[in-house]
Design a protein around this nucleic acid. Sequence first.
DNA 1: GATGAATCGGACTCTTGTGTCCGATTAATT
DNA 2: AATTAATCGGACACAAGAGTCCGATTCATC
Lengths: 154, 154
Amino acid sequence: MFTQTVEYALRAMICLASNPAPGQTVEQISRATQVPAAYLGKVLQQLVKQQLVTSRRGAGGGFSLALPPDQISLLRVVQAVDPIQRITTCPLGLEAHGVRLCPLHKRVDNALADMERAFSQSTLAEILAEPSDSIPLCNFPRGTPAPCSSPQPR
Amino acid sequence: MFTQTVEYALRAMICLASNPAPGQTVEQISRATQVPAAYLGKVLQQLVKQQLVTSRRGAGGGFSLALPPDQISLLRVVQAVDPIQRITTCPLGLEAHGVRLCPLHKRVDNALADMERAFSQSTLAEILAEPSDSIPLCNFPRGTPAPCSSPQPR
DNA sequence: GATGAATCGGACTCTTGTGTCCGATTAATT
DNA sequence: AATTAATCGGACACAAGAGTCCGATTCATC
């Protein structure tokens, strides 16, 4: 249903949002999100190009959010890497349908619209603030000693 | 978002449902749905295997619905050819998450659940019965002389 | 200025979805 | 029995998604 890339992008954005210090490297994000580093680089590029993320090259460089986490909806992330294509005209190209979709495509498009709405309604900030035993990307329940953002030795 | 195959399968099922006479051939369905005949054959095979469609080989053969149209939901068609994969366990394999999804994956899975629900609620029969100017697969507004199920010369 | 750490971009590989083609099989008709 | 109309299955071709690799570039630090 969703591409790997969308899943990866969401993880990366959550990772960036969960650590206030700017400039996480691909390596760091890769470790936290368990996304293959080389591919993660590509995904981050797309996010940079869509201006959801900023990057700095060279030593001390890395990636940061381009906006505060409460201003980035899941939808924006999804649209940045693999846009939800709404059905605007009849896929069969039937003239009689045109913009007035038939009942079949109307339903499919409505489902897509619901999806958009759902994703537009939650932001990175909201997700991180939500009280839950499971903290995104973190393999420790809330309140245990080792926080997920602590550097892990390799 | 949805694969071509899902779109094709839905069209084919609507086509079968819209014509009560059993045994439409790949050629006929292909013409009505504008799906490449050779590929449509593959898609129909999947629907046969999932027991939504029956087939008869040889002269006079073709495809028919295996169930009355009011007992076939869009969801069943979707699940037959490209199942919506719900998120049941943490995609990162984090033990602390397990079945208790984190807020991020919870939201994604909720969206998938909404999708399932939406598609489970409409049937082929309902779609065909819906009053609308646009009749599925048919390039003529309701009430015009040439019905979509009439045989087309080539 | 040299070194090292990092992103950036392009080229490549691998897998999967989409689509074609054809021979084998099945069944109705003549 | 021969012919014809149809599904069925496998092999192949092409394109796009997923993932790897490496050289070029940028920038901080020594």
